[in-house]
Amino acid sequence: MSAAVIRTVNQRSRAARSFKRTAFSVLLRGFSLILPITLVGLFVFLIWGSWPVLQFNGLGFLVSNDWNLGSQYGTPTTVGGHMVLPGASYGVLFLIFGTVASSVLALLFAVPVGVMAAMFVAEIIPEGIRDMVAAIVELLAAVPSVVFGLWGYVVVIPVFSHYVYPVMANVLGFIPGFGQPVGAGYGLMTAGIVLALMVVPIITANVREAISAVSRGDVEAGFALGATRFEVTRKIILPQTHRAIIGVTILGLGRALGETMAVLMVCGNALNIPGNIYSPVSTMAAFIVSQLDSALQDPTGMAVASLTEIGLILLIVGLVVNAAARLLLWQVRE
């Protein structure tokens, strides 16, 4: 009898165990699908949300420069099978220009400064306190983007528009786009500066990691040849981190292209291509937020759909840029 009991207990627990096993593997499989589904879902719903405007605009909106939501109080008219407000058109060339220009400007500041700061921390600061010192720069990543925006609004804009930009305009005025007028401080240059500070911690952290991965043998060989520490860092360590630097630059580009709040608060939200480097601009991400209120007033729904279309472009650009960066950084690690 006892043998029979043991057998049933064994069978039961075996059944329970095999159930648990299947449940666990099914669960794992389910988890494996969540991120791919999210990614596909992002595409599907953004395309769905912008579908009417995709048809209405075609591809011409990318190169035309006339953003106009149409007359709020006019009767919606039908153009090409779509109900739109009279006079509505959704060209976004100025946004593409503003986004690319502010991001490139940010990287021009952030990459050299970030790489040099990483060199300094990795080679000059003693090992015992290195992590603490590095945290000073890398903590910038923990500051919320809207706080960067606030700081840009209350510190960078007044200080730079009064003291820095006038000097810059006088000294660099011979370069087209750098001369007067400097305006009120809202604009491309300020956006670039704030963005640069937001991108820098990613660059510093990754370059520092890449530097610590350089083989010590090479470094010691450099010293044995009589090179100074700077020469070793500049000519032996840095060339070995080139790929990481390129990867992290692209990563930073992705971050800068999609940054919303900080840019929104300092860029000036212009609806045209800026006249010089100090003039107000708008970026795609910032524009999506700044236009929300007026877009929600559009009874035809075309305004929200056109903002969604901008979001779709941002999504595609963000994915491509980030995938490229990750592939490069993965190669570096392996």
Binding site: P36, T38, G41, L46, L251, G311, G318, V321, A325
Partner: peptide, 28 residues
């Protein structure tokens, strides 16, 4: 292989601008 794909996707998802996620949430 699929785990590598998922890891790559998770790295790439980090790069989706947060405002795009907001639009996604708005639409859905």
């Amino acid at each position: 292989f699929f785990a590598r794909v998922v890891r790559f996707m998770s790295d790439v998802l980090v790069g989706v601008p947060s405002i795009v996620l907001g639009l996604f949430g708005y639409i859905t």
